[in-house]
Amino acid sequence: MAAKSTLKNMALCLSAVCLICSAVVGGAYALTKEPIDEAAKAKTTASIARVLPAFTAEPELGSIELNGANYTYYNVPGTGVAIISATSGFGGILSLMVGIAEDGTIHNTTVLSHSETPGLGAKCTTDEHFIAQFQGFDPAVKSLAVKKDGGDVDAITASTITSRAYALAVSNAVAVFNQLKEGGLSNE
């Protein structure tokens, strides 16, 4: 039945199997690379479309460092900037995309990934009142902190920590936006 377990046989067999398997995996990688990139791009484009007003220009990818953290952003000339901003929520990282229009008001926000408690903090993706209050929010007039901390953001019931993290992420994104403005990004 099975081949003899001599050193030569074992080495041959293992190398042959490893070679074939690497070839298969390499082939699969080459074949799926394009669809994977496309899927990732489609997801980003969909998120940008959700947080910014309708646009036609191609979003430009960029990144900036502010207060020791790296932020990725997509600049849509003439429309606004979509900034990816992450903070730590209750259960782990809460990652948002924040769309800020040219005039500095927040157009919309969307959650990219989170690990908040189902039914409590996870409501930050579904609670309409909570999400709607950020639409058209003008950080120059109102303060991006939950009401408990003296700000103007209504927290989700029983999920102050998540709401706080959400508000902080948005306020970080605003800081990034201001930094970008100072850097003269809109003139590009």
Binding site: A3, T6, N9, C13
Partner: peptide
Amino acid sequence: APMVPDKVRIPVYITVIATFVTV
């Protein structure tokens, strides 16, 4: 199975399985 020497069968199986998982 008929071609694989007995002593290295587990590593071979794991490699095969890992290949399909990666695919």
